[in-house]
């Protein structure tokens, strides 16, 4: 078992996500930065879908009741394991009784702690991911608090073989400030100027940006005037309520990028979608950080997705 001594600012248990339920209004949840989550799992010999602890801005303090192998990936976080400082992107052996104490993230927003065997909570609808709005998944459907006790799953590998593994520096991502998008969905609603401004503006991440959505500050975008269609409602930002892709950008007037715990549909015009590999990068953008959107084609988006998958495969193979 792992005992939570301090849950940090906002830490939840996440896996790859809860898919197949979007049609009932259930967002996928799951690790906001799927790349870091998967690398952390790979470092400790886990399959990609094992659950990790996602820590946002502030790290947790944990006490291990049993020997374990752990790895940190994602936002850089200083911390101590017993008397030693703990490295990022490297697997580390933990002795029963050790305490792990993590500080604040210094670059990036989210750090993943993987444990060999995975955090073992009861799956809900096929996933261990926490979805706090309705209180399901993870540990009691909520963020971690002091006193919580987390079980660790069985690891197929011998712990002696797992510690001390790291990934090469070239695979450690740089948290870039350019986020690639594909324009589309209800993008016809924007004026030509606003469509251009979406990609030329330096957008600032607001303090509210969280697992539900990244609200951005910049310019106000304008809509083409029209007689609103029946059922949409009179505001120019309104459309007849429709499904929102994860990663889509809706524009009440200033953009909100929908993240992994977002609403699945509604009546705001969506004008573009962040490509799947860059959703990981956006999840590492911090409050007050500036970002830019770069419009790419669907083909480029698929190519970037393929590269991400191949890179993860290369990392995993390199560790075996």
């Amino acid at each position: 078992m792992i005992e939570v001594l301090d849950g940090g600012l906002s830490s939840t248990i996440q896996d790859d996500g809860r898919f197949g339920q979007y049609h009932i209004g259930m967002p996928p949840s799951g690790a906001m930065d799927g790349f870091a989550h998967r690398v952390a799992n790979a470092l400790v010999g886990n399959d990609a879908d094992r659950a990790t602890i996602e820590m946002t801005y502030g790290g947790c303090d944990l006490r291990f009741d049993e020997n374990a192998v752990v790895a940190l990936a994602g936002a850089a976080m200083d911390g101590d394991l017993g008397e030693e400082s703990i490295p990022m992107w490297e697997s580390v052996a933990v002795d029963a009784g050790d305490e792990l104490s993590l500080e604040f993230a210094t670059t990036g927003a989210r750090t993943y702690l993987a444990v060999a065997g995975g955090i073992d909570v009861e799956p809900v609808m096929g996933s261990r991911s926490t979805y706090t709005l309705v209180g399901i998944g993870g540990h009691e459907g909520r963020t971690l608090e002091a006193g919580d006790r987390l079980a660790v799953g069985d690891s197929a590998a011998d712990p002696a073989d797992l510690a001390g593994r790291s990934i090469s520096d070239e695979h450690v991502p740089e948290y870039d400030e350019t986020i690639r998008i594909v324009l589309g969905l209800c993008e016809y609603r924007l004026t030509d100027d606003s469509r251009e401004e979406l990609c030329s503006t330096e957008w600032k991440v607001t303090p509210e940006a969280d697992r539900v959505g990244y609200r951005l500050e910049g310019v106000e975008l304008d809509f083409e005037p029209r007689e609103q269609p029946f059922g949409a409602g009179p505001d120019p930002s309104n459309v007849v309520d429709l499904g929102y892709p994860v990663g889509s950008i809706q524009v009440p007037t200033k953009p909100i990028v929908l993240m992994r715990d977002a609403v699945t549909g509604g009546g705001y015009a969506t004008v573009a979608t962040v490509i799947s590999p860059d959703r990981d990068l956006l999840a590492q953008c911090r409050t007050h950080q500036s970002i830019r959107f770069e419009a790419v084609s669907v083909e480029e988006a698929v190519e970037a997705r393929r590269r991400r998958r191949e890179r993860l495969a290369e990392i995993t193979e390199g560790l075996q």
Binding site: G184, F230, I275
Partner: peptide
Amino acid sequence: YEHGADDYVFVELDREMS
């Protein structure tokens, strides 16, 4: 037929409700 990046397709059958 609209692409939501690499992994979604959104299909608008009409702009008004019926």
